[in-house]
Design a protein around this nucleic acid. Structure first.
Lengths: 230, 230, 230, 230
DNA sequence: AATGAATGAGTCTTCATTCAT
DNA sequence: GATGAATGAAGACTCATTCAT
């Protein structure tokens, strides 16, 4: 059904078809609710062939996760070119992220939702990728903080203008985590809200985040009220 | 096993035991992987009784979602008391959120992960709650924008200082979405990182978000570079 | 089919029915060729019930082996009453053995054939039983050897007549092994040859074995020709 | 893997390789548990080739049985040379038997265990071979009985010494059956017990059997006690 | 109010077997 | 002479769900 039932194709091609079908099915139904029968039919293949090539439901799912994770990180990394200023890098990275997730909703569902809900093994697989991205963002934030790059400016900012407040390690990690979380959430929102483009989602997030980061680095920070009983 | 097998308890009590067991099981295993057998055993009841009271797996899951959603929104709303300044309201809301999710990891897992991965019906249930919270946050943002509340200040800010730039409807929604997403992400991070308290998570998020919102309302916004080909 | 489909029976009864059906099916088809479907149907039960009570094909098979092994050893031991002379004991044991195997061909098939051909685990289960019987026979032989019981006589033999040649340990074990093997083989033969009763099979084996043992103990033994090069 | 993958070999050779692989696999795993995949891989051939040469799993198994049965009977017959005395013939036959089974454990497993547990068709195949051997032994016993060969003597015995009690047909058959069964059992025992050679196994059995036969032929026979009610 | 007994339907997985080249 | 590609059929096992008591 999923594709014209052409027989006798080289293994590599068939394997790709199967992964495509699997990503779609897992992404829409979830790991447990997806049946191997359904995947096989969608791939235009008999079930035994799926097993011959991919061994088990577990391995098939893992293969999906790996493929989609690689595709996503590749896309993001392709955006973040080291030559640019920190804000520009972040902007491009976000844009790549929103574009990719918008174009691969099933893959994104696998990474963002499905893999996290079905056993530590799968979750760990995604965790690795997420950590990589969080680290990348953390680095960008740290660079911005060091350069003191007035992040409100569009340009990279003349380095050395302000010394930049060295953000504590964990603080930066927390910020990166928040930013990535915000991005993940916006991705879903953008996909679900008609008329919101990847560009717009990225802009919203940049506005939200970069200004806050700027203030932070310049020492203007929000501090909580006295802990309950003064 | 789950509890001492006391016979003949009033229905309300039994029902609570079942929901407790169900939340725990669904939260940890996921909807599909959780078995009615396991839930019944954990509740210390026979399976037919679970069906007698809650009719089906679907309804049981829905009941869990509703209960946990109500508990979470109640907790958050209890924090956000209308009398305070917008920033203080946001701060208290976030603190309540992080505290509640830290204390109810299984319930949070159901709302954040499980319900979203198993069919539109369940997702819609959570969506309703989420929208409520996003609306609440959107309102806070709008208020701050109108009041022009320099959100950097700890206090509500003297209203009327600046007129406040009316944020476009969708922009506000996007920001709220981002903020909620960031909060969700930080909740997981705080739960998983030893030594990060609900207070700290809330502070991090306030720092991240409030300044950005402030800049935004004062017209200082980040704008994207020329769309590739001018 | 196997029995009138009466519903709602106490667990113990149903379990017996299942074991009966399993012994019959495993005994006739072999472990691998027997299907759980077939067993369930023969037992007049649905497959899930078989799994509920007996957990898995492996455990079901093991349960069959244990039950049949116990039944066989019980039968043999009931025959071999310690009060009698060694030859009489052997005779009664053999008769019990041939009688039991003739009446329980499926059980005997499981012990003698099926269990030995499907994995060490099952084989070990039977091995234990077989060792027990071989030990019992070995003991009888040793007693006869000590008493010097002229085994040709019908009576227990006046003990002390001849001192009896202490057979070497391994020699006795080999003899016992041979005797048990001969018995096993004769059991099949008796079952397959119409008109051969358990009594006759036992008599044939006693004639075959007892005299040889007697000669052996009295020192008259057959010795092999010169090893190859005369 | 099973052998260096040399291409384009004459059919006879390939067929032998396949049978070798099949005997090994069937012997160790049993008919049902052995997979054609495994056999093909072990033979270093693709599966279709196995089918091209041997048609089906059934036929392949049958071919194994036939080959191994022929090898075993050939070996035994080569030992039993008609010129010798009956006891010597038996001795040589047994020695050949134990030697061959020790050297071809997989083939022996097929004949002794596997073929008997998987359907009448296969069992019949082995049965034929077994009958041949039992007949051979029966003949030896009959000859010994006629010659009155005091079977305790090492030599053929002077014919005509005692007239020899004509053993009833069935009696002889039963004895032969017992002897063959004992041999089969001892073969397994010898294979499993380190330090027991084919020679020793044969000696043990000769001691066990020949003396008994001797007594029998000289009229000294064991007779059962009165049938229950004296 | 509560449960032991029971099952229909479906899922993952494997295997003997065949084409097309 | 030989194989990579492919499948129909079947089997072990599980689960949500219901009776009869």
């Amino acid at each position: 059904m999923g594709s014209v039932k052409t027989k006798r194709m080289p293994r590599a091609v068939r394997e790709r078809q199967m992964l495509d079908a699997a990503v779609q099915t897992f992404g829409q139904r979830g790991y447990a609710a997806a049946s191997m029968d359904e995947i096989a039919e969608l791939a235009g293949v008999s079930k035994p062939l799926v097993y011959l090539y991919l061994n088990s439901k577990d391995e098939l799912f893992t293969a999906c996760i790996r493929r989609e994770a690689a595709a996503l990180t590749d896309a993001v990394r392709a955006g973040v070119r080291p030559g640019l200023g920190a804000d520009r890098q972040l902007w491009e990275g976000l844009r790549a992220f929103f574009t990719h997730t918008a174009q691969n909703p099933d893959g994104w569902s696998i990474l963002h939702l499905q893999a996290r809900t079905h056993g530590e093994t799968f979750a760990a697989e995604v965790s690795a990728m997420r950590k990589e991205i969080v680290a990348l963002v953390t680095r960008l934030i740290a660079v911005a903080a060091r350069d003191g790059g007035s992040p409100c400016s569009n340009e990279g900012g003349e380095p050395g203008d302000h010394p930049g407040s060295d953000l504590p390690e964990r603080e930066a990690a927390g910020l990166a985590e928040a930013l990535v979380g915000a991005a993940e959430s916006l991705a879903a929102w953008a996909n679900a809200t008609p008329g919101v483009s990847a560009r717009q989602a990225a802009t919203t997030l940049m506005n939200f985040a970069w200004a806050g980061l700027g203030d932070l680095m310049e020492g203007r920070s929000w501090s909580p009220p006295e802990p309950d009983r003064p």
